[in-house]
C-alpha cells in the first residue's frame, strides 16, 4: 500500500464507556457506514491520523513519478513513450486529488509541500528502488500498481468523504496502469531470450519490495485496530498481501516467469498460496532513508521545486498585475 506503518495519534480503540458523547455519536455515524465530511465534528486523533495517511499516500503518488520518469526519454517506441507519459501524468493527478483531500482537514498545501521537500513526510518504500531496465517499467505497472489497487479498492469505502471520493477517481484510472505494465511484461516475456532475461530480472528485484508495500504484519497493532474501527483502514496488511500473492502468482505463470521464492506453494487446505516474508530489516532500513534511491528522490523533489520557482513567481506576478489592471479599469 502507499501508506505504510501509519501510527494513529491515539492510544488504541476506546470502549463506548470511555468515549465522550461526541465520540460515541461519531463512532455510531462511522459504524452506520455514513461518510464524515470536512465540517463534521471528528476526534482530533481521527483528523491527525488521516492527515498522515492521506499525506503519505499523496507523496507516494508524487514520488512514484520518479522511477518511471527515468524511462520516458528511453521508451522503446513512440507508442510506449506516449503511454508512459500518460501514466506519469495520471500519478501527478492522483497526488493532486489526494493533497486536496488532505487540505479539507485543515492542513495547508504549503505545509504539505514543506513536508514533501524536507523529507519529513514518509512515502512508500517501493519508490526508493531503482528502475534498471525497460522491463522494470512493466514490472512496476504490473506489481506496484497491482499492489496499490489491492489497497485502494477497499479504501473507496473509507469513512472520510473527500478521501473516499479521491479513491474512487483514482481506482477508475489505475486499472490502465496495471494493464499497460502487464502488456510490457507479455511483450518482453514472449520476446528474445535477452528480453525474457530482462523480464525475469525485473521480477526478481521487484517481487519482495512489492510485498513490502503492504507494510509489516499489523495483527497486533493498536494503531491499526483504531484505524479499522474508524474505517480509515479496511483490511489488515496480511489480508491484502495474501490477496496480492494469490492474484499475482498465476499471472507470473502465464508469463512463463518464476516468482523468486522457493517456498512459494499452493496450500490446498487454506485455499491460498504459502509464501516467504520479505526481509523486514531491509524494509525498516529503507524507511529510515537508507534505500538505494532515497537520496536521489529527495534531491529530485527539491531540484524540481527550485527550478520551478521562477515560473510560479512569474504566474503569481502576472495574476496580480492583471487583477490590479481590472480594478483600475472599473
Amino acid at each position: 500500500m502507499y501508506a505504510q506503518m501509519i501510527k494513529s495519534a491515539g492510544t488504541g480503540v476506546k470502549s463506548p464507556e470511555e468515549m465522550t458523547p461526541e465520540e460515541r455519536r461519531f463512532q455510531a455515524h462511522v459504524d452506520a457506514n455514513e461518510k464524515v465530511e470536512p465540517k463534521d465534528w471528528m476526534p482530533d486523533d481521527y483528523r491527525a491520523t488521516l492527515i498522515r495517511q492521506i499525506g503519505q499516500h499523496a507523496q507516494s503518488e508524487i514520488d512514484g513519478q520518479l522511477p518511471e520518469g527515468n524511462w520516458i526519454t528511453r521508451a522503446p517506441t513512440l507508442e510506449r513513450k506516449a503511454i508512459l507519459l500518460a501514466k506519469v501524468q495520471d500519478e501527478a493527478g492522483h497526488g493532486l486529488y489526494l493533497y486536496c483531500a488532505a487540505e479539507t482537514l485543515g492542513i495547508s498545501r504549503d505545509e504539505l509541500t514543506e513536508d514533501l521537500l524536507s523529507g519529513k513526510m514518509k512515502y512508500s518504500s517501493i519508490f526508493n528502488y531503482p528502475t534498471l531496465n525497460w522491463a522494470d517499467i512493466g514490472a512496476v505497472g504490473w506489481l506496484v500498481d497491482g499492489a496499490a489497487i489491492m489497497n485502494q479498492v477497499p479504501l473507496q469505502r473509507t469513512s472520510y468523504g473527500p478521501y473516499s471520493r479521491a479513491m474512487i477517481r483514482i481506482c477508475k484510472e489505475e486499472s490502465f496502469h496495471q494493464r499497460q505494465g502487464y502488456d510490457i511484461m507479455m511483450k518482453m516475456a514472449q520476446g528474445t531470450e535477452a528480453q525474457k532475461r530482462m523480464a525475469q530480472d525485473a521480477l526478481n528485484r521487484l517481487w519482495f519490495p512489492s510485498l513490502m508495500m503492504f507494510g509489516p504484519s499489523d495483527k497486533e497493532s493498536v494503531h491499526s485496530a483504531q484505524s479499522m474501527a474508524w474505517k480509515i483502514k479496511i483490511n489488515t496488511n496480511d489480508e491484502l498481501r495474501q490477496k496480492f500473492v494469490d492474484q499475482t502468482v498465476p499471472q507470473a505463470e502465464y508469463l512463463g516467469l518464476t516468482v523468486p521464492d522457493e517456498t512459494l506453494k499452493w496450500n490446498e487446505e487454506r485455499g491460498h498460496y504459502d509464501f516467504a516474508e520479505p526481509d523486514w530489516k531491509e524494509f525498516f532500513d529503507v524507511l529510515k532513508g537508507n534505500g538505494p534511491c532515497n537520496t536521489d528522490r529527495l534531491t529530485a523533489r527539491q531540484e524540481a521545486w527550485k527550478e520551478g520557482k521562477w515560473v510560479r513567481d512569474a504566474m503569481m506576478a502576472h495574476a496580480r498585475k492583471k487583477a490590479a489592471a481590472k480594478v483600475a479599469a472599473e
Binding site: L96, Y97, C100, E103, R109, R165, A166, R169, M315, M316, H318, A319, K322, A323
Partner: peptide, 11 residues
C-alpha cells in the same frame, strides 16, 4: 469534481 490551486481563474 474537486479542487486545485492556481494563481488566477484562467490558469
Amino acid at each position: 469534481v474537486g479542487s486545485l490551486h492556481a494563481p488566477d481563474a484562467e490558469m
